[in-house]
């Protein structure tokens, strides 16, 4: 059970301000979707929370403790990170990659308990049958699931997912988001997830943070943030929220000239 509180988080790369006074709270069992155009600072925010990048100012507190003050080994048991890009070698097997998630819990030898956790993580993503395969033999989507399974095996209180659905087909996108919802509801983990698909954010998130050029452009429930006006302001597209008997979705219509120029910078 983890509560993440970010206050006035600012990040500068030289003269460029990548994040500007971002404040957000994420409680246990909740999913916060991070949306915004390419280069708006989503990955930067996630990497600072994971302490991969240093911050410039502001604070990132996990259960009242500054994440940069937490011992790396302790932080590794609390925070599970799924990056946008993965490395592996020709000799990495699916099992070994997922087992890495248990690294913070393993001293040297691998116990039956660890193996069971790895099995659970593989099964949760329905990739148990791939356990013995080499990662480079998999399709892009399967590979992405392996790295999500690695974070699941880590069993953290806070998940940080940087576009976990990027290379997945529509079915797997839904499966992964359903899984994260299940993890949040059943295990009470907090989930911070950057997504490009606004409809996934709309459908699965408890709250949405929309950022644009490092600044908060909207923060609240999906229905409050993902409005046609906001979307036009941030993405420079015309859209419509369509409500059917089974829920609402965002229907993007067309790009507006001139508007996108001021937002799709970096």
């Amino acid at each position: 059970m983890m509560e993440l509180v970010i206050e006035n988080l600012t990040k500068d790369y030289g003269d460029t301000r990548a994040l500007d006074s971002v404040s957000v709270t994420l409680g246990p069992g909740h999913i916060l979707a991070l949306v915004g155009p390419n280069g708006s600072g989503k990955s930067t925010l996630i990497k600072i929370v994971a302490t991969i990048f240093p911050k410039s100012s502001g604070s990132v507190m996990l259960d009242g403790t500054d994440v940069f003050e937490i011992e790396p080994a302790e932080l590794a048991r609390c925070v599970g990170y799924v990056p946008q890009f993965f490395s592996y070698t020709k000799y990495s097997t699916v099992f070994e990659m997922v087992l890495l998630g248990r690294r913070p819990h393993i001293r040297w030898s691998v116990t039956e308990e660890e193996l069971a956790r790895v099995q659970d993580a593989l099964d949760a993503l329905d990739i148990g049958h791939l356990a013995g395969k080499y990662v480079d033999e998999l399709s892009g989507g399967e590979r992405q699931k392996v790295f999500i399974a690695r974070a699941i095996a880590q069993d953290p209180g806070l998940f940080l997912l940087d576009e976990p659905t990027a290379s997945l087909d529509i079915r797997h996108q839904i499966e992964v988001m359903e899984l994260m919802q299940k993890v949040a509801r059943i295990k009470g983990s907090a989930v911070l997830v950057a997504v490009h698909d606004l409809n996934l954010a709309f459908r699965f998130a408890d709250s949405v943070l929309m950022i644009c050029e490092g600044r908060m452009a909207g923060y609240g429930s999906p229905a409050e943030v993902l409005t046609p006006e906001q979307i036009e302001k941030v993405y420079g597209i015309e859209s419509e929220v369509v409500t059917t008997g089974r829920g609402s979705f965002i229907l993007p219509l067309r790009a507006k000239r001139g508007v996108a120029g001021e937002t799709s910078g970096r």
């Binding site: 790396p72 932080l75 990659m97 690294r103």
Partner: peptide
């Protein structure tokens, strides 16, 4: 050896599992 194993998955993942 375990730390070297984690490094296979990239610096960011290695850092995420607690490795300096």
């Amino acid at each position: 050896a375990w730390d070297l194993n984690a490094l296979v998955a990239g610096d960011d993942i290695a850092k995420n599992v607690g490795i300096d």
